[in-house]
Amino acid sequence: MSLSTIMSMVVTLIGALYTFSTLMLPAARIGNPTAPKVFPLILGIALLILGFLLIIAELRNLPKTEEEKKKAKASLAFGPVEKNIIFTILNGILYALLFNPIGYIFSTFIFLNLQLLIFRGKQKWLNSMLISTIFAVFAFLLFNTFLGVFLPTSPLQFI
């Protein structure tokens, strides 16, 4: 099975779930009670149909030769690239958790250091720390001080 096949199933599944939750929506108390459901219902059913079309297309083009089968398998391979993507997402979640408690500058410093670690490995760590510090401070000044986008500060108050 290839990623494309899985995606066509996911799309169909989303269509089904969306249609189902549309039907579960409460009736409107102002105007026509079913009005808020009509447009979502059209969308849900349209996606279901498109999803089925996609699945049919996938089944028709099932890999036949060895080469095609290899390619399909490769699209689902779990290698260093996929590992890095997962790390990046986890790093983003950590960032979200730290952002308010310890303020913009420190959380960004940690986030950027970890992200540079993911991209470059641990060799140039000193350089990475320098980049993170400069970015965090510069971005804080630019956004918070200059552009008036108020960023959270650490419990130390001043940064």
Binding site: L98, P101, I102, G103, F106, F109, I110, N113, L114, K122, W125, M129, S154, P155, L156
Partner: peptide, 28 residues
């Protein structure tokens, strides 16, 4: 050597967290 550096790096990064964990209770 590399491992030691990495540990140092992590320790340094976590320092502010540790610092503020204290700072927080004092502030309120």
């Amino acid at each position: 050597m590399k491992k030691a550096l990495l540990a140092l790096l992590i320790a340094l990064m976590l320092m502010p967290v540790a610092l503020f964990a204290n700072g927080n209770t004092e502030g309120g």
